[in-house]
Design a protein around this nucleic acid. Sequence first.
DNA 1: CACCATCTGTGGGCTACTGTACCGAATTCG
DNA 2: CGAATTCGGTACAGTAGCCCACAGATGGTG
Lengths: 264, 264
Amino acid sequence: MSTKPKPQPQQNHLLAALSPEVQGRLFPYLELVPLPLRALLYESRRPMRHVYFPTDSIVSLQYVMENGASTAISVVGNEGLLGITLFLGGETTPSRSLVQSAGYAYRLPRLRVKEEFNRHGQLLMLMLRYTQALITQVSQTAVCNRHHSIDQQVCRWLLLSMDRLSHNHLTMTQEFIGNMLGVRREGVTQAALKLQQLGVITYSRGLIKVIDRPKLETLSCECYSVVKKETDLLLHYLPQRQVITNTDSIPTVTLGTPEAVRSL
Amino acid sequence: MSTKPKPQPQQNHLLAALSPEVQGRLFPYLELVPLPLRALLYESRRPMRHVYFPTDSIVSLQYVMENGASTAISVVGNEGLLGITLFLGGETTPSRSLVQSAGYAYRLPRLRVKEEFNRHGQLLMLMLRYTQALITQVSQTAVCNRHHSIDQQVCRWLLLSMDRLSHNHLTMTQEFIGNMLGVRREGVTQAALKLQQLGVITYSRGLIKVIDRPKLETLSCECYSVVKKETDLLLHYLPQRQVITNTDSIPTVTLGTPEAVRSL
DNA sequence: CACCATCTGTGGGCTACTGTACCGAATTCG
DNA sequence: CGAATTCGGTACAGTAGCCCACAGATGGTG
C-alpha cells in the first residue's frame, strides 16, 4: 500500500477533459474504490448508486441469458464510465458490469451526477459523446458475433483490452475469455495456440503477453479498428483536454470500500 | 393520394409524448417525408441533416462490412427516432439507415433539434430515454447473434417488425430478411418453412402474414421479450403521454421531398 | 515434498450453418 | 402472349464451432 502510487482522477480521460471549474465542483465528491477481479459493479436490473470512472481497471458489460450463457457486449476502461443508465433516465439495465482487470475507479454518487447533469454543461456533453462511442462498440460486437471467427474475435478482444491498460500483458484465463466472447474455452485455446505459434503472443496460466501487436491487429477483423477509430474520434479530440502533468496537485477524498463493491 | 389519411406527428410516440408547449415550438418545423422501401436515410459516415420520427415506416440500422456482408443492429419505428448521433455529439456513425418497410416519417432539421436540445427540456429527456432503449436493442442483437439459431432469430425479427406496424403482415422477401440478419437466404427459407408448417405464418413472394402471434413469441428466443419489456418500460410510461384523439387538429407544414431521401 | 486445484491441450462425434448450384413457380413487362 | 426477372424450394459437400471426456502441465499449499 505504501509503494504503489495512488491513481489520480485525471487518469480517466473523461474526468481529465473537464474544465478546472467543473473539476472543482465534482472532484471533492469522488471516491476512490479498488475493483478486484470479477467484482460486480452492477447486477442486471438492479438500481445503481454510483457512476464509476475507471483509472486503471477494465470492466465489461455482460449479458447473462436465462440458461446461464453469457456474452460481453462492451469493454470499458479509463476512456469511459460505467452507469450511463443513470443519466439516460432508465435507472437499470438488462446487462451487468463485471470487473475484467483489477484496478481502481473513482465513483460519484448518483445524486451528484444528476445535479451536475442538470447544469447541462460539459459533463453532459462528455457523457453523451461517450455514449455514442459505447453504442459503436456494442454494435460492432453484434456484427462480429455474426460474421467473424473465434480467432478473429480473440484478437479483437485482446486489442480492446490492451488499449485500456498501460502495459502489454493481460491477466485472464482462456476460460474467462470464452465467457466474455460467449464461446467455449476450447475454441479460445485453439485460437491462442495459433497466435502463439505465429509469435504474436505468449501465455501461461492466465497471463498473456502480447509480443507483436501490429501483427495482432492484422489478424483481427475490421471490427476492432472501427471501434478504435470511432472512439478516438469522439473522445480524443475533446475540448479542454488536460494532460496529466503533476499527479499530486488534485486532492482526492475518500479511500475505497472494497466490500461495498464486491457482490460476487 | 386522396384516399389515404395523412400521417399525423402524434403517431410517433416520442412526438406524442411532448407537452403542448414543446409541440407548439417544434411542430411548425416538422416536414412530412415519404420513405420508400430500401431508401437510405443516412449513409454510413456521412453527415446527417435531419432527425427522423417515423409514423408508419420501419427503418433498420445496418452495418455493412468491407466485404459487403451486412447485419442489422436495430429496428426503429414509430416508437423512436433516427439520428441520435446528432444530439450525442458525433455527427456521423459507422452504420447506415435503411428503410425496411415503406411509410412516412416527420423530420426536423438538425439546427432545430440542437436549439431545442439546448433548452434542456423534455426533448432531451425523451431522446436520452430512447437512446437507452436503443442500446438495449443493439446489445440484444449481439447476444442473439452469438447464441441463437436462425429459426429463433427470424421469429425475433418478425416480432420486432410487427410491433412497429399496425397490421399483421409484413412486406419483405426472405432474401431481405437474410441480409438483415446477416445469414443466407436459404437459412431463412428453412426457418420460414417450419413456421408455415406450424401454422404460425403464411407467405408468398415477399408478403408474410402472421397468423398465430402468441406461438411466434414462444418460438422466439428471450431476446425479443428483453427488448420489448425494456422499451415498454422506458417509453410507454412517459410523462405527458398524449393519446391521439382528433387527428386533424394539428397542422403539418411541408409535404415531403422524395428525391431528397432516395439515395439508393 | 506430495497433493490438489487450476489451467491448458487433444480427440471424437454431432449439428448448424455456409457456399454453390440448379430448378420451378409466380409476377412483371415488352 | 412470350420473355425476363424475382422469389422460393432443394440438395450436397465442406466446415466452424459445440458437447463431452480426458489427460498433461503448472503452480500453490499443507
